[in-house]
């Protein structure tokens, strides 16, 4: 399966994604894995904190909510679950600037 891969901090609110891989190592990685952020797990950014950081994620199909900083979210590489739901311009814009 091939898909466009984004880091989670770039995906706008309300788009369910599937985790492809984690680029973090050591304690960060372990912590993410412990919280259920495993490869192939489903994840969705449900909201930002009032100041734009951290983000609140829904992990898995059931209700499990996790707060995570953008910094850590950038270690999580995801694919969008449904490419059709993609707000193309929005994503193209945010992923264009490295």
């Amino acid at each position: 399966m091939s898909c466009a891969e984004y880091t989670l901090d770039r995906v706008p609110q309300g788009h369910p994604c599937r985790i492809v891989r984690l680029t973090a190592q050591g304690a960060v990685r372990q912590r993410l894995l412990d919280m259920g952020l495993l490869p192939s797990a489903q994840v969705e950014m449900v909201r930002m904190a009032p100041l734009g950081d951290p983000l609140e994620l829904r992990v898995g199909e059931r209700d499990s909510f996790i707060a995570i900083r953008r910094q850590e979210a950038s270690y999580i590489h995801v694919c969008l679950c449904s490419e059709a739901a993609l707000v193309t311009e929005n994503l193209a814009m945010s992923s264009a600037s490295p």
């Binding site: 960060v28 912590r31 993410l32 707060a67 995570i68 910094q71 850590e72």
Partner: peptide
């Protein structure tokens, strides 16, 4: 320093 990953309790 380590990450900020916090559970949001019900």
């Amino acid at each position: 320093t380590v990450p900020f990953v916090m559970e949001m309790p019900r």
